[in-house]
């Protein structure tokens, strides 16, 4: 933990059970190596953004942390909190369950219902509790998925391009919503995104992946609220785009 903590020196979170520890993780599909020996420590409460080219292994890493890949060949060791939520690119709501039932899937503690209604109000969908998912717009469905992730107060939130399918305006609103809501619960977060600006606006730390390895690991030491016009923002942006092999000049 100490190695990662030095990256964000002013960050201290005592919740030991919310840390993620990854050692020498390898994943292979047939003969393709999707993860090529990843080692990584994420301290509790840190917001990590994972960016990289298409096919660089981001989703594979996220699924490995989520323990959704037991049919995939590989090795290594991952310690992650059991109390975790996964936010997918598709909202993945069960179409035959109402909004509130979807949020409460697998939540069994007393008071869950009231909490679910509160979270639903937080994502701006109070009063839609009994709607069918099909009756909601794509952005609204994704907000329900966010509510489903947060109602179980996860120690770890894993999100794979959760806003990737949304239009630019909705995406901005969703980013703000996510930031506001996780600011309250402070779970550890790994957010996969292909959007460098999204990473820089939200994350404490940005990882760049390429061909199954982490090729860049940068803290984002910029105070919130962040603006793209901030020179520090622009510098970091250029660095990250460089690591992705992109230049901004046309």
């Amino acid at each position: 933990m100490s190695a990662a903590a030095t990256l964000v020196p002013d960050f201290v979170d005592p919740r030991e059970n919310a840390t993620v520890r990854i050692r020498d993780v390898v994943r292979r599909f047939d003969s393709r190596t999707a993860l090529d020996g990843i080692s990584l420590d994420i301290p509790a409460g840190q917001f990590v953004a994972l960016i990289g080219k298409s096919g660089s292994g981001k989703s594979t890493l996220l699924r490995a942390i989520a323990d959704l890949d037991d049919d995939v060949e590989g090795g290594g060791r991952i310690d992650a909190p059991d109390n975790r939520s996964v936010l997918f690119q598709d909202s993945r709501l069960l179409p035959w369950q109402s909004v509130i039932e979807n949020i409460l899937l697998g939540v069994r503690d007393a008071g869950a219902r009231a909490r679910a209604e509160a979270v639903l109000a937080d994502v701006g969908l109070a009063g839609r509790a009994d709607a069918w998912p099909n009756q909601l717009s794509g952005g609204e469905q994704q907000r329900v998925a966010l509510a489903r992730s947060l109602v179980r107060r996860p120690d770890l939130l894993l999100a794979d391009e959760p806003f990737g399918a949304l239009d630019a305006l909705t995406r901005l609103k969703m980013q703000q919503l996510l930031f506001r809501l996780v600011g309250v619960q402070r779970p550890t977060i790994v957010l996969v995104t292909h959007d460098v600006d999204e990473a820089l606006i939200l994350a404490d730390r940005v990882l760049v992946m390429d061909e199954g390895r982490i090729v860049l690991d940068r803290p984002v030491g910029i105070a919130h609220p962040r603006r793209a016009s901030d020179p520090a923002f622009a510098t970091l942006r250029t660095t990250l785009l460089g690591a992705l092999g992109v230049t901004e000049t046309i």
Partner: peptide, 9 residues
């Protein structure tokens, strides 16, 4: 995907 969701929740 629903089966996967069932696992994650």
């Amino acid at each position: 995907r629903y089966v996967e969701l069932a696992r994650t929740v």
